[in-house]
Design a protein around this nucleic acid. Structure first.
Length: 632
RNA sequence: GGCGGCGUAGCUCAGGUGGUCAGAGCAUACGGCUCAUACCCGUAGAGUCGCUGGUUCGAGUCCAGCCGCCGCCA
């Protein structure tokens, strides 16, 4: 019997009329990150997702396809589960509303609320369109001028028997609950909307339909199926074992958070709590409405053909890049803009340049300077101390941000640590330490860096699914970062001294946009004035001696007579000219170039040559001229 | 139409209760480094803080009006 605290988190259950897009993936990845974080913190997590498989729309979609509704959804659900597998989603249960266990729950609740008197049979009256097979509200009917545009026919006033849920009598209780529990509906703007909505007064809700049959039958009246939202919302109870497995149910219920898209806040923040109150069950602790991933090209829709398929993105960029983008790009409850360019920018700047390169340069240097071994650290300097404090503060800062649902900010804290580590490397300058033979300092710096990478592996584990483990084994550590536990990231000195690191390969390859690369290759050439040009001094010279420079395939060391002096010049022409052919050759020399050492060889000028596809051709005067002749 | 929110550097956005609040990241430019995935580190922006009035010694920060965008209104 475990005494672990529990954490129950849910996603909405998705409507399987078509494959899911990046927006669905966003919700689920966010929930997954939170679930993973809570597990690492030691919570007994129940992470639930699923599919909402009933309703008229599905019934008619299946009819269009010429298959049964069940066969139709079965096909799509397989693909949804495959998507979650691809994205590394770690749900503990997956509720399909067509499962018997769920249908039993819904009928159980419905009957219970009916017996209590909060569901009653009445007459539904409204504006009906035969083409739409649906009712419109009075407001909608007025706006439509009593006429359905889609089907070009007048709305009919229809009446039918239906069951109603007495929501009206719960509005005060619900309002009170919302006011007393500010965390109940988040973010605040959504809560205000909900409060405003309730304050206008709640009507009873029609919770049965008889115009179609693809749904869960009202237990005592086979003519009617239960309203889809009543059906769908109850999945949160099904997943927790209600009502048969009471031990499980009491352990996990009430849910800690229902993560939902902002478009379905109302169902979760009004209908669902009232269903629970009517059924005598505790309310969930929080409904969190997140924003949307909006396309820069406008709203995502099937008809526009701009639906973003997460599977394709994962194939192109890898699951961790896609997850990172989703988690980092959409802040707390706000909308975020999706574009492939934005994803690439994020991947390159954050993952490849900052974090991936940090790992790669650290491990490469460990091999180069310390033979791949993490040695015990020596004395701690001020620089080391601030680095250590920064490392150890990271998990806690990230943790409290996760708890506040500020996932993107938590991601940022992680990024800041990588950035700080890069700065630490620059300031510690291990290459200089190696040159000076400061072995003790070197050992300390790399021990600190190893610890930093260890912590990064742990704190990135809720966000990413492949890279943290790769990093872990690269660091030569035992086990894997996920099972380390969050608190291990707050401990110092966990890396055993003398650990040997593996061979590094870039964790996140940069995505290079070929077009942009071309642009960079050919920068705009600035226009020079005559005055600019007159600053350049070029003279004709004659090569006196020429010899190869050892270990430098392209370079030749020349001595060139430029009239009043003989200069030593290193020229990158060895691939096109043999030294022995150059003696006596006249060349053009840039003589007022600042002297430089190239491969340790002094060079006082530059020999001009044309380059054609790698072939060098020396610029020579068209006829012999005096050494030192100026070029103008 | 009613209620609510937003409009700040090229881009994405931070900026309790009015007075170092004119900022961060990305992008760009320049400088540095050379361990590294042309990477990293440092420095740089004058952006009328949507517009117009007002309150105030002083307003992105409060008030009014206007313009534009968005959310909720079963």
């Amino acid at each position: 019997m475990t005494l672990k605290p529990t954490y129950y988190i849910t996603t909405p259950i998705y409507y399987p009329t078509a494959d899911l897009h990046i927006g669905h993936a966003y919700t689920t990845v966010a929930a997954d990150a939170l679930a993973r974080f809570k597990r690492m913190q030691g919570y007994d997590v129940l992470f639930l997702t699923g599919t909402d498989e009933h309703g008229q729309k599905l019934e008619s979609r299946a009819r269009e396809e010429g298959v049964s509704p069940q066969a139709f959804v079965d096909g799509i659900v397989i693909r949804i589960k495959e998507l979650w597998r691809l994205m590394g989603i770690t749900h503990d249960d997956f509720v399909r509303t067509t499962e018997k266990r769920h249908m039993d729950v819904v009928q159980h609740i419905f009957a219970q609320v009916f017996e209590k008197g909060d569901i009653y049979k009445g007459q539904y009256e409204g504006w009906y369109c035969e083409g739409c097979e649906g009712y419109f509200t009075a407001t909608q009917a007025r706006e439509m001028d009593g006429h359905c545009q889609d089907h070009e026919r007048p709305l009919q006033r229809l009446q039918e028997d239906a069951y109603f849920f007495r929501m009206s009598s719960y509005s005060d209780r619900l309002l009170e609950h919302i006011r007393e529990n500010p965390q109940f509906i988040q973010p605040e703007s959504r809560r205000n909307e909900i409060v405003a909505f309730i304050e206008r007064g709640l009507e009873d809700l029609c919770v049965s339909r008889s115009s179609f049959h693809w749904g869960i039958p009202v237990p005592f009246d086979e003519e009617h199926v239960i309203y889809v939202w009543f059906d769908a919302l109850s999945n949160y109870l099904t997943g927790a074992g209600y009502p048969d497995d009471l031990a499980r149910f009491e352990r996990y219920w009430p849910a800690d958070v229902h993560l939902v898209g902002k478009e379905i806040t109302r169902f979760h923040a009004i209908i669902w709590p009232i269903i629970l109150m009517a059924a005598g069950l505790p309310l969930p602790r929080q409904i969190f409405a997140h924003g949307w991933l909006v396309l820069d090209s406008g709203k995502m829709s099937k008809t526009r053909g701009n639906v973003v398929d997460p599977v394709i993105l994962i194939e192109k960029y890898g699951v961790d890049a896609v997850r990172y983008f989703l988690l980092c790009e959409v802040p707390f409850g706000m909308d975020g803009v999706y574009s492939e360019d934005a994803l690439i920018a994020r991947l390159n700047s954050d993952l490849a340049n900052d974090q991936g390169n940090l790992v790669h340069r650290t491990v490469s240097m460990l091999h180069k300077f310390l033979d791949g071994e993490v040695l015990p650290p020596g004395a701690e300097t001020e620089l080391d101390r601030s680095f250590r404090e920064r490392i150890l503060a990271t998990p806690e800062r990230m943790g409290s941000l996760f708890d506040a649902m500020e996932i993107s900010k938590a991601v940022n804290v992680m990024r800041e640590l990588a950035s700080f580590a890069n700065k630490y490397i620059d300031e510690a300058a291990p290459w200089a330490l190696a040159k000076e033979g400061q072995k003790d300092r070197l050992a300390t710096v790399f021990y600190y860096l190893a610890e930093c990478l260890r912590v990064l592996a742990i704190v990135s584990s809720p966000l990413l699914v492949e890279t943290p483990e790769k990093l872990w084994s690269l660091l030569g550590l035992e086990g894997n970062p996920r099972s380390e536990g969050w608190s291990k990231a707050q401990e110092w000195g966990v890396t055993p001294p003398h650990t040997r690191v593996g061979v590094s390969e870039p964790l996140f390859p940069r995505i290079v946009d070929e077009e942009k690369k071309e642009e960079k290759k050919q920068p705009k050439v600035p226009q020079l004035t005559m005055k600019d040009f007159q600053q350049v001094e070029m003279k004709v010279g004659t090569v006196k001696t020429a010899e190869a420079i050892p270990k430098a395939e392209r370079l030749l060391k020349l001595t060139v007579d430029i009239g009043d002096e003989v200069r030593q010049i290193v020229a990158g022409i060895a691939e096109s000219y043999r030294p022995e052919d150059l003696t006596g050759q006249q060349v053009v020399v840039l003589t007022n170039l600042r002297p430089a050492k190239i491969r340790g060889v002094k060079s006082e000028g530059m020999v001009l040559a044309a380059v054609d596809d790698g072939i060098m051709r020396l610029l020579v005067p068209d006829g012999r001229v005096e050494e030192g002749s100026k070029i103008s």
